[in-house]
Each structure stands twice: as structure tokens, then as C-alpha cells.
Write a protein that binds this DNA or RNA. Sequence first.
DNA 1: TTGCGTGCAAAGGTTTTGCATGGCA
DNA 2: TGCCATGCAAAACCTTTGCACGCAA
Lengths: 145, 145
Amino acid sequence: MSTTRLTYRTRQREILLQYLKSMAGNHVTAQDAAEYLKAQGSTIGQSTVYRQLEKLVDEGVVSKYIIDQNTPACFEYIGEDSHEAEEVCFHCKCERCGRLIHMHCDELEGIAAHLLEEHHFRLNPLRTVFYGICEACQKQAAGKQ
Amino acid sequence: MSTTRLTYRTRQREILLQYLKSMAGNHVTAQDAAEYLKAQGSTIGQSTVYRQLEKLVDEGVVSKYIIDQNTPACFEYIGEDSHEAEEVCFHCKCERCGRLIHMHCDELEGIAAHLLEEHHFRLNPLRTVFYGICEACQKQAAGKQ
DNA sequence: TTGCGTGCAAAGGTTTTGCATGGCA
DNA sequence: TGCCATGCAAAACCTTTGCACGCAA
């Protein structure tokens, strides 16, 4: 039987959660969190950040995005109640500068529906990353030509 | 000044490609390739494996899948001609059974146009992989419930 | 008091990089 | 001949783990 472990309310957990919440809608890496909190005077150990993030992901409070294996994982606050109706977020990764762009877009959400209805494939937006070239890099490349 | 680099036909590239082709339909890690080829008596340096795989992914000959960041990346042979054709081919990877689904779809091609026009992002369909759950696995999961 | 959480440092494992050499075209 | 490719070893990188101590409940 899965013994749902009891979660303690520690100072570290609270400040991390508060930080994630304040960054809602943005990507945050484990390092970002640790650095920001340290700058704020609230120290938190790196392993604690990872351990709490993992826990929060399990709880459904935070989403984890794996872009690439040599890129730190991104986390994003989703919410503590609505485990059901969160907005879908799509990710675009620039192959040239490595920048990660995340976008909320109705039309893109439509493709998830299309894939399901027409191709019977249930898209997982958390894992899926669109690779390509971002606007800045396109312009730069055009300028150089 | 398109800097399309010239690709040399080296022994290492050929044996790697041959191996990938022989494993078409299966996942292969960089380590798998290196070990198998060594066992065959065809040695190939580890960095060469990584460098050639990256190149093949860029060329659209091979797809790369990231399961987790602490798990080696998986590669799979797709084909050497598909990138010439007008038709764009999209790839869907089932996260459960690992099956790779190729699909040609006008509506999906539309998303490339949408991304470019609305978000100024030039999609690279060769590299982009949609992750999700395939039809068979959905049914299986439904049955189990 | 119990046992989960924390922090430090070190390990773990994959991928990348520097540099000199080799080899295709 | 020019330039890309290779190989080795070392570095870089994020993440996990071991262990002793701290702290919530």
C-alpha cells in the first residue's frame, strides 16, 4: 500500500513555495530558486530545493519540464487546488541561442484536441518541446547574410 | 552565406549509420552504439558517437528522445530521404510503450505557419517530437481501470 | 518522542570540450 | 592542400545520495 507520507511545514518549504507562487507563469530552475532565496537572505540548501521540488511535483502543485538533458529542469507553479483545470503551456526552444520560450495559445491548444480526435494521440504538453529558431536569431541570421 | 557544412563520409559515420538502420524501430543510446560497435570489432570513440548523432539529428535522419534528464538520450533511425520530400513528417512518441508514430497532416503543418506568423518562431519539424500516449495504450489503460 | 526534513560534501552519470592527429575531397 | 572528423582525457553539468543533526507534530 502506498503510505502517503506526512508533509511537514518547514521554513524552507514555505519560502520555496512562496517564491514559486510569485513567479507563477514563469519558468524557474532549481538554481534560480536557490540563488534568489539566498539573495533574499533566506538560505536554503540545494538538495532541499531538489527534494522539495520533487515533492511538489508529486503533489501536483508544480509542473516540471524537461527540455534537454543538459539543461536544468524547469519548474512552474500551477496551483494548490485546481489540479484539473490549469492552462496548457507550450514550449519552444531555440536551437541556436538555446532560449526557452513558453507560450499560452488557444490555437496551439487546438492541436492537442486535433491530435486526440483525428489521430487518437493524447498529447502531453509537459514533455513536448517545439524546436526551431527564435525571432531574434532569425533576424540576426538575416542581417549577416 | 549559407554555411551548410560539408559532411565527410568517414568510416565511423558509416558504421554508426548502419547500426542505427539495423536497429530501426528501436531505441538506441550513445553507449549502446559504442559498445555494440566495439563488440563487432569496429571501434568508434565516444565523442565521435555523440558528435555524429547530433549531426544526424540535425539532418533529420535520426530522432532524439529525452526521457528524463538523468537517463541517457535515446536515438532512432527515421530515414534518409524524408527530409527531401515536400511533405513534412511529424513524429509522435508514446511515453508508455515507446512506439514512434509518423504522421503527415495538413493541420499539423498549419501549426508551423501559425508559430511563424503569430509567434515569429520558425519550427523545425525534423527535430520536434510530440510526446504523449498512443491509442493502444489509452485503451489498455482504460480497460485496466 | 518519532521520523521527516535539512545541509554539506561527495558521488554519480551523461554529455561536452580542448587539442593534436588523421583522413576525406 | 584545406578543412572536417576523430580520439583521448579531462572538464562541465545537473542531480542524487550518505550521513549526522535539526525540527515539526
